[in-house]
Amino acid sequence: MADTVPIIETHALTRDFKATRAVDSLELSIWPGELFGLVGPDGAGKTTTLRLLAGLLDITSGGAELAGYDLARQAEKIKRKIGYMAQRFSLYSELSVVENLSFFAELYDVDPSVLQERTEQLLAFADLTEFRSRRAAHLSGGMQKKLALACTLIHRPQILLLDEPTTGVDPVSRREFWDILGNLHLEGTTIVVSTPYMDEADRCSRVGLMYEGRMIVCADPQSIRAQIQGELIELHTEDWQMASAFVETLPGVLEVQIYGESLHVFVDSADERLPAIEAAFRDQGLVLREARRATARMEEAFISLVTRLDTARRLEKET
């Protein structure tokens, strides 16, 4: 963070849709070269935030600056500095790979003398060279995403805004896509990416957790993981329903998260509670296949934070 001025800065940025406040007084500073991950449950306001930053939606109140321009008054100037990739596939499916690239190159006024070279670069970079003449409609989901990314990179934007770019993509393509983002990050492009995948959030330099239109936590992944209360124990049982109900009643247990057959149990002290839990299961006659200490990942941290927020919300409504 050599630069002292944020490349994206929002001030009480707010957007209402009829009765709902999709984005609520968002305060966000993103520094040049960051790879910023935007996470949060569905409907938290991630897409609305990205669309606001891309100039696609009117601001209800507040404001933002991107690359030194005011979002409300200079949106058209900002458009030349950013690349935006929508969540849905949004290229022209009747056009070929190359036709899509050159269409966006012309709209972004890419210098014709570098167009040829840059097209080839992007095709190679997105691994689409051999599919250059194929219509976008006939590409696989992963290839469509890579083409969409290539189209948003054709004008060398300073800022990339990516809305769930890997949703609905197979794991291999997902990994490839993130390798490309990693390279762009190394080249110094500022990237804001929303994602429902916590392993992806782990690859970001900083993560913002949105909940009901507000930014709840904004920190690097380690700090977010550190926010989890207690230590983690992983239990593999035979009957997870009965086991989870039982384990919640034990002393020192702070939170239980269910992942299929296994239970992730947060306790005040793992050293102390692990033998106690094993003993309690034996006494109760419940089968415990495996019980071990584990390190909390983003996923546990995320679920823990959202569960706490949901509980607080419920209590607030009740009173």
């Binding site: 458009k79 849905r88 022209y92």
Partner: peptide, 11 residues
């Protein structure tokens, strides 16, 4: 088809 969204972010 969502294509409008991608065109509207261009200049």
């Amino acid at each position: 088809h969502g294509t409008l969204e991608q065109v509207l972010v261009t200049p």
